[in-house]
Every structure is written in structure tokens, then in C-alpha cells.
Amino acid sequence: MSAIFDVAGVTKSFGGLTVNRDVSMRFAAGDRVALIGPNGAGKTTFVNLVTGQLVPDAGRIVLAGDDITRLDTVARVTRGLVRTFQVTRLFADMTPADHVVMTILRRMGNATRILARFGGDSAANDEAYEILDALGLGDAMRRKVGEIAYGQQRLVELAIALAHRPKVLLLDEPAAGVASSDVPRIERALERLPPTLAVLMIDHDMDLVMRFAKRVAVLVAGELVFDGAPADVARDAKVREAYLGSYGHASRDA
């Protein structure tokens, strides 16, 4: 199967600390990959590197056949490489509907118009409503983001990501900070992601990971020590030694 997204040999050091060492991953359309690893392993850094928030020291990133290694974040997003943030980054004074409409307008090329009324595009409004309603945000979508529950804010992050209609979606701990009673809502949203979309999800919740992923990758201290079937991950000697052996003690956050 040809790769829609190909990350080859990405390396990044902060000072003396190498946070990603020669990390390579390939994704085909429709992939569901989970990236796991202890806190501080470099998972978020990997997302920052491939989305252009950080510049890698070495490595090559190819999206849909194009080398995007030197492109900035904006150019990567417009080409269909979209991420969510581990800690929600939303505009507190705006509503979920505002966020999603803004994203749709961006996709349509109308986000920077001055002589237009924000919220006056009924096609964008209809689409935003559908996305938010499907995520169960029907009641929250007209309230300010700063006033809704954190679990709902996580869903808004997902709604924005969907509004981009991405080719590749990178989810950085979509369930982090969500009350366990709300996790099923996130999980249902993940199940409904478009089937052709390639998805990488970072998470610590092994139950969630095992239900979601068709493939699991394990990052330990900046190195990818495993990339294969979920059934094999627990049997892999390197993973056991480096990671699962201490899994029972690993904390859930960050």
C-alpha cells in the first residue's frame, strides 16, 4: 500500500537531550495507529516536528508524495496535515460554532475576508452545525468556550480537526483531562472518523488504544522501539523491558 504520509529519520535535540532519535513512521489512507510511550518519551515533540511547530535537526517528511519538510505549519495544514493539542488551545471568548465556522471558512479560502459578515455564510453554518451536532455539542455550541466543560472543549478540538477535512490527523491525547464518564463520547467520535483518513492517536489509556488502533507504535526515550500489531506489543521483549515493565507505575498525565 502506498503511503499518504511518510516520516523518515526525524531527529530533534534540545540542548544535549535528544528527544526524537531517527524516528520513522509510514501511514496509509485509513490507518489507525496509536503512539504510546512513557511521559517525556517525545510523543508530543514528534507531532510538533511533523506539523512544523518545531524544526527537526534531521529527517524528511513527505505528505501525499510531496516533500513538506521545509514548509511552515500553515502550508502543511492547508495540504491536509492536521493536529489536535494535548492541552486544549481554544479562544475562550468565542463559541464552539465560531471555531468550527472559522476553520471551514479557512478551508474555503474566505477566512481573511474583511467585507464579509462572520457567521453570514449559511453553507459554512450548516456544515459547522452538522459537525458539532454529531459530536454531541448541540447544546454547547453557542456558548463561550470558556464557559463549557473541559470534556466538551476536547470535543471542540476534534470538531475543528474534522472541519479541516484532513488527509492525516494527529490526535495528541484526545482524552487527556476528560472525566472518565465523558471518555465514551470521545471514543464514539473517534469511531466515526472518515474511513479514508489516516489517524495517529497518542494516548495512555491502553483500553482505549487497544479498541482504536490497528497498529501500535511505542516511543521510549526518543526512540521508536516497536511498530506493529496491537496483539504483539505486549509480547515484544524490547517494549516489555523498556516500557511495559514499568507501566503499572507510569502516571496517566502529561
Binding site: 506539523t51 511547530q53 511552515d72 505549519t73 500553515v74 495544514v77 492547508t78 492536521v82 493536529r83 493539542f85 488551545r89 481554544l90 479562544f91 475562550a92 471568548d93 468565542m94 465560531d98 472559522m102 476553520t103 479557512r106 478551508r107 477566512a111 481573511t112 462572520f118 475543528i160 479541516h164
Partner: peptide, 17 residues
Amino acid sequence: MLCRGAKEDPVRVEALG
């Protein structure tokens, strides 16, 4: 709206494309 967004969180606006 984008200006307001950029005031609050430039990284988020760039992630919006």
C-alpha cells in the same frame, strides 16, 4: 475574528491554517 484569535493564541491560528 482572526485578529482576535491571533491576539489570544497565535499558535492556534497557524494550526487553523
